[in-house]
Structures are given as structure tokens and as C-alpha cells.
Amino acid sequence: MNYFLFAICVGFATYLQGLTGFAFALVLLTLSSLLQLASVGDAANAATVLGLLNAIVYLRAHPLTPQWRVVLPALPGGLVGVGFGVLLLGWLSSNAVQLLGLMLGATIIACAALLLVQQRTRASMSMPLSYGVAGALSGLLGGLFSAAGPPLVFHMYRQPLPQEAIRQCLFVAVAVNSLVRLILVLAVGRFSREALLLSLCAVPIVYGVSRVQRRFPLRVGSIQIRRFVALLLMLAGAVLLVHGAR
């Protein structure tokens, strides 16, 4: 039953990812933790595999034309952040499981609040260093919870770029972080059999939902979608905090 419920959560997270270009791992980890379907580490590892697959499916169906001047400055800091986040997750999983749960809840609320902030589009592009900082913060969250989106999302949506270009930049950055994270957790032996089974049972869901969504796109404004996702995450994060504090 856990695998069936996990697959349903994956389908929901995949649909939101297709609408926004982010939120897959945050939504999946939130639902998985609330329903107690898997440990944070196993759910994060499964989210890494599935998020990478989701990005590949999306990018295969859309011409790859990201703004490389925006993506490339964000990648080095992201890779460093991913490495540190994976190490921190390993230590917390072994020594402070309750603290890890509280950190997940607090991270979800903080990310949700960040997404709710009204963002004004800048008149000109930000300096390259700012993308590096946003990339490093995203990488840290990616290493910890495979949730590399929010800091970079917040920064990217302030740039004077078309929304499709922003979405593609986010997909590329998250895919690179996910690939590096997967290599690291495999190298240090932290990818369990349970994470593998969760990933395998959900692969057809990611592919199927992505295909259906591409064929029958939902015409909803990105601002409305972002607010819905943020409110959902904020509520779920509060529940996780209350549960973890008991």
C-alpha cells in the first residue's frame, strides 16, 4: 500500500512540476512525510531519481534553449552546495532524526513563504555573482532534501526573461544538481534498496503524467499556480513541525 500511495504522490508532484518548473521534490517529500511512507533520506533519494527523469522527459519534449548566461553562473555554487547537503543529511540521519524532521518542516515553510513574496521583475539582469549565491543555496537544499528549486526560483522569476526561458533554466539547473546528488549518494553507499523500489514503482507515473500533461496542458497563470503550491507547502510544513516537536 505504501508504494501505491507513494506513486499517487509522485503523480501529483509531477503535475505541479510540469506547471511551474519546480516543487517536485518539496511536494513529494511533504506528502511522503505526512503519510509516513518512507524515511526522509529514502524519499529524498527517490525524488532525486524521479526528478532527474522528469527533467529528461520535459527537455526531450521541448527545444532546449535555456539562457546559458543565467544557468552557467549558478552551477558551480550549486555543486558545492549539493556535496555539503549530502554530507549533512548523512550525519543528521544517523545522529539526529528528529532534528532532520524539524529541519524539513522549517525548510518547507521558509520555501513556501519565499514563493509567496510578491516579486517585481527587474529592469535589467542581475549580476552573475547573485546567480552563484542562489545556486549554492539551492544546491544545499538539493543535497539535503533533493529540493533544489526555491532559492533559484525566487531569483530567476525576478529576471526580465520570458517565463518559458525561466522554466527551462530551472529544469536544467535542477537536473544537473539531481545528477550530481545521485552520483554522490551512490558513491557513499546511501542509496538503499527501499529508495530503489520507490523509484522503480513511480517511474511509469512520471512518464505517464508528463505525457498527458503535454497533450492536455492546463491554461492557468503561473502566479496562481505558485500561490497554490506555496500555500499547500506552508500548511504541510506546519503540520510536520507540530508532529516533529512532539
Rank of each mutant, 00 (worst) to 15 (best):
A123E: 14
N54D: 05
D42L: 02
G83Y: 14
A134I: 14
Q17P: 06
L92E: 11
C111E: 07
S32G: 07
F22E: 00
A110N: 09
G77H: 13
P151L: 09
S126R: 07
A106H: 01
A148Y: 12
G101I: 13
L37W: 01
S146P: 00
L28F: 00
Q119Y: 00
L99G: 04
S138V: 14
A43R: 07
P76H: 14
A113M: 11
A110P: 00
Q118L: 07
Q118A: 14
L52I: 12
P151T: 13
L75C: 04
G132Q: 09
A47R: 09
P150C: 03
A113G: 06
G90F: 03
I109F: 07
S39G: 15
S33K: 05
A55P: 08
G77Q: 13
I56E: 04
P128I: 05
L92S: 01
L116T: 12
A61G: 12
F24N: 01
L79C: 10
L140C: 09
L26K: 02
G18R: 09
L144R: 10
Y15A: 02
V153R: 01
P63Q: 01
G149K: 02
V133R: 06
A61R: 11
F145I: 06
S33Q: 09
S32L: 03
L137R: 10
S33D: 11
A13E: 06
G21W: 00
L52Q: 04
G21Q: 08
A23C: 05
V70R: 02
A74V: 14
L59Y: 00
Q36V: 12
L26P: 08
M103P: 06
G139E: 12
N95D: 13
P63S: 04
Q17R: 07
L87I: 05
G21A: 04
I108D: 05
S124W: 10
F12C: 06
T48P: 03
L50F: 08
L144V: 04
A112V: 10
V27L: 03
I109C: 13
P73K: 07
G85V: 13
C111M: 10
G105H: 06
A13R: 07
G105W: 01
T65N: 05
L116K: 12
L144M: 13
L87M: 15
T65M: 00
T30R: 09
P150V: 11
A96R: 06
V80E: 00
G101S: 15
A134L: 06
Q36S: 15
P63V: 00
L141H: 07
S32M: 03
A148V: 08
P150Y: 08
T107N: 11
A106S: 10
F22V: 07
A55L: 10
L114F: 07
V117Q: 14
G149N: 01
A55E: 05
G101Y: 14
G143M: 15
M125E: 13
T121F: 09
Q118C: 00
Q98C: 03
G139M: 14
A25R: 10
